[in-house]
Amino acid sequence: MADNFPDLIDMRAVRSGIDSWFNGIVSTYGQALETAFLPVLRLLNGIEAFLLWVPWFVLIPVIAFISFAATRDWRMPVAVIVMLFLTGLLGLWEPAMATVALMLTATLFAIVTGIPLGILMSFSNRLQAVMLPVLDVMQTMPIFVYLIPFVMLFGPGKIPALLATIVFSVPPLIRLTNLGIREVNPEVIEAVTAFGATPMQKLFAAQLPLATPTIMAGINQTTMMALSMVVIASMIGAGGLGYEVLQGIQRLDVSRGLFAGLGIVFLAIIFDRLVQAYGKRVQQHLDAGNT
């Protein structure tokens, strides 16, 4: 074994030190962490149970109607109906709903955590300087590096899958919220300040509404990244369409993997278009008068 770099420190000792520290955390706090996140699991399971409780022939028209309301374009609901119907036809209705539930819950938590973080970041250059590299790490660190520790901390299943999905998908939302607020027309902000707005009034009257299109783009990216995580999430027991894909590839069952993959693509298209259409509707008053 040709070692180019000398062994200056005994990495084995460092590693086993870190490992035993982590094991200590697992044995001390593992149970408490799992219990603490049970409400989240219940929410996730509740959403999933609800989606499965609603009959498909009710759910498909409802989603089609929502898509029409968002786009005002008859082609969108037609596409939604066709894609959802195909998903059911391929025998993927239940895993698809599990995936939707996971994605919705992850997106919800990403919004609840990501937007406030993005706001704080836009207020402070120092926080931005700290957060940007952290976000870089979150986005480039291979998922498995934190996936397996999450499993050890929270137990295998949906909670670590959800957390990993959030960690993976929230950075664009934080970034775009920060960017959106920083890019709000400075004259509008100045005007609001000149009329005596408190920082909170400034935020809610001007910054957030004007940054909404950018924030919506962030939410869109977050949903897409959450969807792209479903296969990996299924490797730690999240189930859903990802597990179907996983079964397909691990058993070399090409058709199963392909169909489940198509199901994921359908969901991605539907959510992408819905969020985009909603973003455009929010944006319509913001276009002009804002030079």
Binding site: G30, I148, V151, M152, P156, M235, I236, G237, A238, L246
Partner: peptide, 19 residues
């Protein structure tokens, strides 16, 4: 419970034994 991956199963065992 299908672990989804060997690493996941091993992590699950490690967790239980640690606790």
């Amino acid at each position: 419970f299908s672990a989804g991956s060997g690493a996941n199963l091993q992590a699950a065992i490690a967790r239980k034994v640690a606790q």
